[in-house]
């Protein structure tokens, strides 16, 4: 028998072990195995290896911390589920009564997404990050550590500034999703308050001066420098959040 013919036969024997043959081809292979000891041994050995790999090689399941992070990040893109109520138990457990009340208020007061859909999206993202404790994937007060972390993770390079001197120390950053696109979320502190700054690349938006909004007790200020749209979200009072935005824009 030629080498080519052998090669073909062996791949057929393997395909039989992998359950890939039609009943007709499988019957033809079975008939050949009856008369060829080499192929019979090959068939047996392939099954042994296949079984050995299946039974003994490690199957790496996603680690719990990673699963939680991905669920937090991507569940936002699921349509609002009617069973949202189920979240209350978890929120109350992980937060304490005051935060639970705030969370309930958010659930009750949440308006349907309309013209201000992005505003609601960034607020939802901020609350999810607070709730899950995954505020940052890169934890650093050094802008030269945080900025390169986004390299290759986004299709643009988000500006990162340290405002520690102005009383808004940088704490880190993470990826989040806004309107189906990956964006940078930078995390700053003022005393015990967390400020999330969403940095969203959008072409041809034109410059826009800061615009303030309040939703569910959270202050949101958005502005655009022409290429990038910013959303600052925090439970910090409006005046101090305004200072943060002013300082950010004034810092080169």
């Amino acid at each position: 028998m030629s080498d080519d013919r052998h090669q073909e036969l062996r791949l057929l024997v393997q395909a039989d072990c992998d359950g890939e043959l039609t009943p007709r081809d499988a019957a033809a292979v079975a008939a050949h195995l009856e008369e060829c000891t080499d192929c019979r041994a090959l068939h047996r050995n392939l099954l042994v290896i296949k079984e050995g790999v299946h039974a003994n090689v490690s199957y790496h399941e996603a680690p719990d911390h990673f699963r939680r992070r991905m669920e937090t990040m991507f569940a936002a893109n699921a349509p609002k589920q009617p069973g949202r109520r189920r979240q209350w138990g978890g929120w109350i457990g992980s937060f304490g009564v005051g935060a639970a009340l705030a969370a309930i208020l958010v659930l009750l007061v949440s308006a349907p997404r309309g013209d201000n859909g992005t505003e609601q999206t960034v607020l939802d993202g901020h609350l999810r990050a607070l709730q899950s404790g995954h505020l940052y994937e890169v934890a650093s007060s050094d802008q030269h550590t945080v900025k390169p972390w986004f390299d290759g993770r986004l299709d643009f390079a988000p500006p990162v500034k340290d405002l520690a001197a102005q009383g808004f120390p940088l704490k880190g950053g993470r990826l989040d999703i806004v309107d189906g696109r990956a964006v940078a979320a930078l995390v700053y502190n003022r005393a015990k308050h967390v400020i999330d700054l969403y940095v969203v690349h959008r072409q041809n938006t034109g410059e826009a001066s800061p615009r303030e909004a309040t939703r569910n007790g959270y202050n949101i200020i958005s502005w655009s420098d022409g290429e990038i749209v910013y959303w600052a979200v925090s439970d910090l009072n409006r005046r101090e959040l305004g200072e943060f935005v002013r300082d950010w824009r004034a810092t080169p």
Binding site: R10, T37, D38, A41, N45, V48, G52, V57
Partner: peptide
């Protein structure tokens, strides 16, 4: 790839008993 491949190879049965870390 195929010429030096005698089908009869009882040692493959070893795979069954291998330590997971070694097979990994």
């Amino acid at each position: 790839d195929f010429v030096h491949d005698p089908g009869d190879d009882p040692e493959t049965a070893l795979v069954r008993k291998q330590d997971r870390a070694q097979l990994d």
